[in-house]
């Protein structure tokens, strides 16, 4: 167990690689109750969400979820978030644990009394059931027609007797669900899910596997690929950034950056010589620094050392041969297309 943002978190149960492969091949269950929840409601709720985020929240129907970014005036990421539209004027925003209070203050401080903003993190346990068998396992415990819940959609219903928000979302690159329920029901729900998944090989999975899974899929992790000084244009999140929607905080800065061109870009790296690139290691081109690694690991699925990092825009070309400085040695790597891993049959929206 480790402490993270005030939460006691399991890094691993059986071992990171075993848990990682269980999620890719069968299913894994994560307790991600540390994630924060901020709810925005009232007549001005949509406007407030629109003003503070990059994606177009107006396109989100009730029962739908959307990956989005809270931006500051400079276009930097306050946080990356998932917005669930519970009702037309009621949004549940799932935020990163370490940013919960920052985000809550950020949103509330800009509500101008037109929407109610509440930190409801303590009202939810969040469990993530992820992997190709997720639907089959979950279906044993609920009357909800799970096959009809499309990616980035959700329904309310009972799972093993506990009322849950059941969303087809996740952070692993596999099919799966995230369940939000009352903390009093959390432990029983966990146990029911583990029981229902036992014969399918469901494994409990910790923070370690969550990190390697998201990294293979090149999902950003706040504090690594994103922070207050990185913009979505630099981070490869232009698809999240709807510059043509109504005005939003950071839009002017992003328009300017788009016009002038970004100075650096997030890229994928694969080591071509033995070694593992880790966060903060320098990235070099013929000995000259061109950037820095933000996350890196040995990929359990691919059996290769992979990393994300920022390099100067001119060098951000797939195929480019570079080096990573690992404990004083230059180790060969090359830029590769992202994501590193894409599940078979998955569309681009996953």
């Amino acid at each position: 167990m480790v402490e993270f943002a005030g939460w006691e978190m399991p890094v691993q149960y059986q071992g990171v690689i075993e848990e990682h492969l269980a999620v890719r091949r069968r299913a894994g269950l994560f307790d991600v109750s540390h994630m924060g929840e901020v709810e925005v409601s009232g007549a001005g709720a949509l406007d407030l969400c629109q003003t503070l985020t990059a994606n177009d929240v107006a396109r989100v129907q009730v029962g739908q979820a959307q990956y989005n970014l809270l931006l500051n005036e400079s276009g930097g990421a306050v946080d990356d978030i998932v917005v669930y539209r519970l009702e037309s004027d009621h949004f549940l925003i799932c935020v990163n644990a370490a940013n919960t209070d920052k985000d809550f203050q950020w949103i509330r401080g800009r509500s101008e009394g037109k929407a109610e903003v509440r930190d409801t993190s303590s009202r939810y346990v969040q469990l993530a059931l992820q992997g190709p068998l997720a639907e089959k396992i979950l279906q044993r415990l609920t009357g909800l027609a799970l096959a009809q819940i499309k990616p980035f959609h959700f329904s309310f219903g009972e799972v093993s007797g506990a009322r849950c928000l059941v969303a087809r979302t996740g952070y692993t690159g596999e099919d799966g669900f995230e369940l939000y329920c009352d903390p009093d029901r959390g432990e029983a729900l966990w146990n029911s899910l583990m029981e229902a998944g036992r014969d399918g090989g469901l494994q409990p999975a910790g923070l370690g596997a969550r990190d390697t899974l998201r990294l293979e899929k090149a999902y950003p992790l706040y504090g690594h690929e994103l922070d207050d000084t990185t913009t979505p244009l630099e981070a490869g999140l232009e698809w999240v950034t709807k510059l043509s929607k109504v005005s939003f905080l950071g839009r002017e800065a992003l328009l300017r950056q788009k016009r002038e061109g970004v100075a650096r870009r997030l890229v994928g790296l694969e080591m071509t010589a033995p070694g593992i690139a880790r966060a903060d290691y320098p990235i070099l081109k013929e000995g000259e620094p061109i950037g820095r690694v933000t996350s890196g690991t040995r990929s359990p699925t691919l059996g290769k050392s992979i990393a994300l990092g920022y390099v100067s825009a001119a060098e951000a070309v797939v195929g480019n041969g570079v080096e990573v400085e690992i404990r004083g040695r230059s180790v060969a790597a090359r830029l590769v297309a992202l994501p590193f891993y894409r599940r078979e049959g998955a569309g681009k929206t996953s």
Binding site: M1, F4, E8, M9, H34, N96
Partner: peptide, 9 residues
């Protein structure tokens, strides 16, 4: 005693 601080997300 949980004094170790590591792990990120």
């Amino acid at each position: 005693e949980g004094e170790e601080e590591s792990g990120e997300e």
